[in-house]
Design a protein around this nucleic acid. Structure first.
Lengths: 327, 327
DNA sequence: GTGAAAGCGCTAACAC
DNA sequence: GTGTTAGCGCTTTCAC
């Protein structure tokens, strides 16, 4: 690697002069400047960014902690985050917690030690202890999707409202039996399930308003239960899923059992991952405007990094129901 | 942030002693060691990794350049790469080129300047000039999927062989008209389409061996062409796609037109992204064992970083045909 | 307009 | 066993 010291030696000038040329600072003659720039171009000089950061305290790096990229939704979010960050000159350091609470803490510790200028996480930890932990990190941090506490900035769609809208939408389509399919209860209590809970509350609330009886499905192996619950009863029935992943699963189970969607049973997802238009029938879902979500998240983080006062603790972005033909 | 200097001041010892305690080097009494460890634990001391790297020359960071995460296949690869890297103590710096050749060069420049210890890229650039460019970076580099030149290590499945296997498989199933659906020609020439070309050659080769006439489809808006080509002709017909993305598109088009899959037309994908089991009918495809691919890629890079001699320039990992019910 | 020197936080060689 | 020091590559202040 070629350093500014090399340049200074070769050009027969001091380090200060090299810096003036390279970083466009005043106090240098046109002639020496050109010479230095020429030499550094020829030698392919590139500043050692870590060394620069060490000196300036600015890293131009954001640390990201997700649990995994299995769910394409997170991959889409990550994709948008990389792009937003890049527009502002930042780069991303990516870590995955694999749904392990302890691992998430390790990831955060590591990122802070790098160091990074800010953190974006989709947290699985929760509670007062984790809040204290994040405060001790002493790095601007924004949470996505799962809220941790009132003191940690949070960006998401309004999951509760969105799921309530889904219920309204289904009711408007004439459904009277709306079965809610959400993740197994195993995770509850252990993991941060804020988004999951919000969506569930939205469902409960919507059902209450519609005067309908909630029916919840959250087995690990839901096949028999789904088939039992969706047996034709004369009432128009739909399975409303807390995530597209479950909607895909439901669709497979129903198809295998020979049930027609949406004629016999309606199915609706949530998150609107890219593939839904290609299922049969194309799945209706709730779209999150991921670009906006990522941009908002990044902007909040930027405000925090710049020390702006009164950064909102909660920022909710839009959602909309995507009508396809599964309900 | 709390530094080793802080610790040394608080404990009333020198920096050298703090370092001996913190990094388990010999030449320190049990007593002072314990004291230093206790204090640093209490203060939540974390070494400044960038400063350490500046001194040691080892960064424990791998730079990654992908074009995007839209195709879930790349998200899955990235997921596996993060996990492999983590097992060996490495972290990933992620950049996206968005299919822009110039941007890919920028990403590489940036990553090298950070600096990183190694690079994993899914290249869109190609040719001698790019080969020279990567050599000048002077950082161990492994390419995934798209090969650049004989001098740059390359890890992938054997795309040509795999696509040839697909043809054999379809022929074995009685298909006599096998239409190949691959990306629009627009990219050819501009972008590195090594993987795409290999797959295409595998198709041509397989068809030749089977004594069948190749039919290729690569329009940007393939709808009318697909419907025309798959009109029942008495011959058993399948659409073999160069990527699952196209298979999903084909499936949608056929469904919309009322064609039955696989009764009227067979469809087969390539890459086996997670969702295929959930389409209707579930899509047959070629599975890449992504974990193995990622691990292999990382191992090759590790060998390069450790300066091992005779690191293979080409490493091909396994593939297998996943039989579902679309053909 | 240019040079010299200090220092970011860390490690490691050397002195005592 | 412990302290001192130099230096990784960079920026920045101060002196000339």
């Amino acid at each position: 690697m070629i350093t500014s010291k090399d340049i200074s030696r070769i050009c027969g000038v001091s380090l200060g002069t090299v810096d003036r040329a390279l970083n466009g600072r005043p106090g240098i003659s046109q002639k020496t400047k050109e010479k230095i720039l020429k030499v550094s171009r020829e030698l392919g000089y590139r500043p050692h960014l870590a060394a620069r950061s060490l000196k300036t305290g600015k890293n131009w790096t954001i640390g990201v902690v997700l649990f995994d990229l299995d769910n394409h939704y997170f991959a889409q979010v990550l994709n948008s985050l990389v792009l937003c960050a890049h527009e502002e000159g930042y780069f991303l350091h990516l870590t995955l917690s694999e749904h392990k609470a302890e691992r998430e803490l390790e990831c955060l510790h590591h990122l802070v030690s790098l160091p990074v200028d800010g953190l974006i996480i989709f947290p699985i930890n929760k509670g007062a202890e984790f809040t204290r932990f994040t405060r001790l990190l002493n790095v601007p941090l924004v949470t996505l999707g799962n809220r941790v506490s009132a003191s940690i900035p949070f960006v998401s769609i309004d999951d509760k409202l969105a799921m309530g809208n889904c219920v309204d939408y289904l009711v408007g389509k004439g459904y009277r039996r709306i079965i809610y399919f959400s993740p197994p209860l195993v995770y509850r209590g252990k993991e941060n399930t804020y988004a999951v809970s919000e969506r569930y509350m939205g469902y409960r609330h919507g059902m209450k308003l519609a005067g309908l009886e909630p029916v919840v499905l959250n087995e690990k192996h839901p096949k028999s239960k789904i088939l039992e619950l969706t047996k034709t009863t004369g009432e128009k029935t739909a399975v409303l899923c807390s995530s597209d992943i479950y909607a895909l699963e439901t669709l497979s189970i129903l198809r295998e059992a020979g049930a027609r969607v949406p004629e016999d049973v309606g199915v609706m997802g949530f998150d609107d991952i890219d593939f839904l238009a290609h299922t049969s029938p194309p799945l209706s879902s709730v779209s999150q405007n991921i670009d906006l979500l990522a941009r908002t998240c990044f902007n909040v983080l930027k405000d925090l990094m710049e020390g702006k006062p009164d950064v909102p603790q909660v920022t909710l972005t839009d959602h909309r129901i995507v009508q396809r033909s599964s309900v």
